[in-house]
């Protein structure tokens, strides 16, 4: 993966804006930001981000490649779409945030252990197994990501919610044993593989 990163660095030299435009979803919008700061002010998580969206766009234009791609800021986006609704320049900010996160992930330089990223990976792997999300396994996998001790603690803390869901038949304990999947799992995998192939081609990640 990291040779992908080296390649990208080689290819774009210090033109990070161009790199973003060509590789990041909706990246061609970055140049249109007028630095008003409305997005950062609108983001419910803005104050907690190391670099709120406005700043990220400026950093991209200033060529701060490593700081941006290694940042955990865009991983904090909850897709609330507040910023998109308000941006006077109509930038699809949310999509750019996810695009940047995704690009950093694929280059292998996204922050290690970043919780959103870890959960996203867990979710993806879980879904890929049977073609649908197994909630029991996903929850347990998530609770026990930091080992047995921490897992029990976390599970105990959430037990009332869990029991309530069981009662309401929102959680099926039987799913722990294997769980059910899609009818045409093979077809599903083929479909995802094709989509990935198309996207890789589009973003220049051909192996």
């Amino acid at each position: 993966m990291s040779d992908l990163n080296t390649q990208a660095v080689e290819r774009y030299r210090n033109n990070f804006l161009k790199e973003v435009e060509e590789n990041v979803e909706e990246g061609h919008w970055v140049k249109m930001c007028m630095q008003c700061g409305v997005c950062s002010g609108s983001c419910p998580f803005g104050p907690h981000w190391e670099h709120p969206p406005q700043e990220i766009f400026m950093m991209i234009r200033a060529g701060k490649r490593d700081e941006v791609l290694a940042s955990d800021s865009m991983w904090m986006c909850t897709s609330c779409y507040n910023c998109i609704v308000r941006c006077p320049r109509k930038l699809p900010i949310t999509h750019i945030m996810h695009g940047l996160a995704n690009y950093a992930h694929r280059l292998g330089i996204a922050p290690k252990g970043q919780p959103t990223r870890e959960f996203a990976k867990l979710f993806w792997d879980n879904m890929m197994k049977k073609g649908r999300v197994n909630e029991m396994k996903l929850t347990i996998g998530h609770y026990f990501r930091n080992g047995i001790g921490a897992g029990i603690k976390e599970a105990m803390a959430m037990k009332d919610v869990g029991l309530g869901m069981l009662k309401a038949k929102r959680l099926n304990p039987m799913e722990l044993a294997g769980g059910h999947g899609l009818k045409d799992l093979k077809g599903f995998h083929a479909m995802v593989a094709k989509a990935k192939e198309i996207e890789d081609r589009k973003k220049g990640f051909v192996k």
Binding site: L17, K31, M32, M34, Q35, M58, R61, R89
Partner: peptide, 12 residues
Amino acid sequence: RSGQEKGVTFTK
């Protein structure tokens, strides 16, 4: 906006 589209960089 046209300037931005043409790739003029604006730095505050």
